[in-house]
């Protein structure tokens, strides 16, 4: 990851905030604000870059850990938000609204309208706003920008959001299955032709091509799934026989996906931050955009298992691309 150039200031920039249409800038006081149990501070970066396995650099946008921001780089995906069930959480978000507008939507978290991060039902953040919410259910979520979402989420403005049980135990949910090793796989596709547009592309009308996503890269948690994710320790997992692995699988793209576990058997114990009434045993999981599945694996046979994420065409169902990583069982 390095300091990209271009970023959000690419072709078609309409001249800062005034260039966007149907945006709702604001930064009011948080209703009923209290002292939280935990605070996360987020800013915006619009000049990130990731290097793909073919040597190309692709511009990404995201959230910084801290309030600074601008035409700089930053971590991709955005830094996780990790809290405990029952905690009151502040996500203090600073956005330099004179340049562009953004929000944070804590996807699957269900707060008041003001704290939901949807521009047209509240506001696009212009300045600093503190989102206040209380985590009611342990599980797997993610957060993402909800301004011109079609473009901003595709540009990478998302990060994991994990709610642990209230006592902090390493369990999928309160009184749920315990785990020894955890993997967070946010599976996404990239259409690099979208990655040189202005933050407000299309919002005033005109054909910005945002109805037609033709992905050319397929990633797992920010790592190119062509080759790098097979071995990158941020994605690939090693587990000993007898240990329990929790995979938090997030469909962070727009295409339907099918995760194939290479013959390994998994138990789906929760989805979308809610425990299932009865776990379901699978070797493959089909998902659509923004679904989350919590998979418990207890592998018993040593070996190297190549996991394949298939990204599917929304009309034909054909595989448009694949990302691969590995589970190594010792």
């Amino acid at each position: 990851m390095g300091m990209g150039s271009g970023g959000g200031m690419g072709g078609g920039m309409g001249g800062g905030m005034g260039g966007g249409c149907f945006t709702y800038p604001g930064a009011p006081a948080t209703p009923g604000i209290v002292t939280p149990h935990v605070t996360f501070v987020r800013g915006v970066y619009m000049g990130g870059s990731i290097r793909m396995d073919d040597g190309r650099n692709v511009t990404v946008w995201g959230f910084t850990d801290g309030s600074s921001g601008g035409m700089m780089g930053g971590p991709f995906p955005s830094p996780p938000i990790r809290v405990r069930e029952g905690q009151i959480v502040h996500t203090r978000f600073t956005n330099q609204g004179m340049m562009w507008l953004h929000t944070i939507h804590h996807h699957g978290i269900e707060p008041s309208s003001e704290n939901d991060g949807v521009g047209h039902t509240s506001f696009d953040v212009d300045g600093t706003y503190t989102y206040q919410w209380r985590a009611s259910h342990a599980g797997t979520y993610f957060y993402h920008c909800h301004t011109n979402t079609v473009l901003h989420a595709e540009m990478g403005m998302y990060g994991a959001l994990i709610v642990d049980p209230a006592n902090g135990e390493r369990r999928a949910f309160s009184n749920g299955p315990a785990y020894d090793v955890e993997a967070i796989w946010a599976c996404d596709e990239i259409d690099s032709s979208w990655h040189s547009k202005s933050w407000d592309a299309g919002t005033c009308g005109g054909d910005a091509g945002l109805n037609n996503l033709n992905a050319d890269y397929f990633i797992i948690t920010g790592i190119d799934g062509k080759t790098s994710a097979l071995t990158d320790p941020r994605v690939a997992v090693t587990v000993n026989r007898g240990q329990t692995l929790l995979i938090r699988y997030i469909n962070a793209g727009y295409y339907p996906q099918r995760l194939d576990l290479s013959g390994l058997s998994a138990s789906i114990v929760a989805s979308d931050g809610r425990a299932l009434p009865t776990p379901v045993t699978v070797t493959s999981v089909r998902t659509t955009s923004a679904e989350r599945y919590d998979l418990i694996l207890k592998p018993t046979v040593a070996g190297t298992y190549t996991v394949v994420v298939n990204y599917l065409h929304w009309v034909t169902g054909a595989v448009r691309g694949q990302a691969r990583t590995r589970i190594t069982v010792k």
């Binding site: 149907f22 309208s113 979402t149 079609v150 009308g205 945002l210 109805n211 659509t288």
Partner: peptide, 22 residues
């Protein structure tokens, strides 16, 4: 009380004519 949304999350569906998010 409050005002919320339901939308398709394959976000290309939130456009019209290739733009016009929302």
């Amino acid at each position: 009380m409050g005002h919320y949304v339901m939308h398709l999350h394959d976000e290309q569906t939130q456009t019209a004519g290739g733009g016009l998010y929302q």
